[in-house]
Amino acid sequence: MEYNIIIAPDLDSLATEVADFIPMGWKLKGSILEHTNGFAQQLERSPSDALRMQRKPRQAKQKRTKWIE
């Protein structure tokens, strides 16, 4: 199992940085921690997830959304 910790000064930048790791097979682990330098989030992935993401070509799927008024 691989682990990664993302540290950012505010919640907006933390969300942006974490979002970059999600397509690479990383999953959120635990909750957001607040500390003196800002906020932190721990991520994890198994080695099989990492290999699967490397082999699988990324396809941009267009999602259809229906807005409820």
Results as ranks from 00 to 15, higher is better:
2 E>L: 15
2 E>Y: 15
3 Y>S: 11
5 I>G: 01
6 I>C: 02
6 I>T: 02
9 P>V: 14
10 D>I: 04
10 D>H: 07
11 L>C: 02
11 L>K: 04
13 S>H: 09
13 S>V: 07
14 L>T: 10
14 L>I: 13
15 A>E: 15
16 T>H: 09
16 T>V: 07
17 E>R: 14
18 V>P: 01
19 A>T: 13
19 A>V: 04
19 A>C: 02
19 A>D: 12
20 D>F: 12
21 F>H: 12
23 P>L: 08
24 M>P: 00
25 G>M: 00
26 W>G: 01
28 L>G: 00
29 K>L: 11
31 S>W: 07
33 L>S: 10
33 L>T: 13
35 H>L: 15
35 H>I: 14
39 F>H: 01
39 F>G: 01
40 A>C: 02
42 Q>C: 10
43 L>R: 02
45 R>Y: 09
45 R>I: 04
47 P>H: 06
47 P>F: 13
47 P>S: 11
47 P>G: 06
48 S>F: 12
50 A>C: 09
56 K>D: 12
56 K>M: 13
57 P>I: 00
58 R>K: 06
60 A>N: 11
61 K>S: 09
61 K>Y: 10
61 K>H: 03
63 K>T: 02
64 R>A: 09
64 R>Y: 11
66 K>I: 11
67 W>D: 08
69 E>C: 08
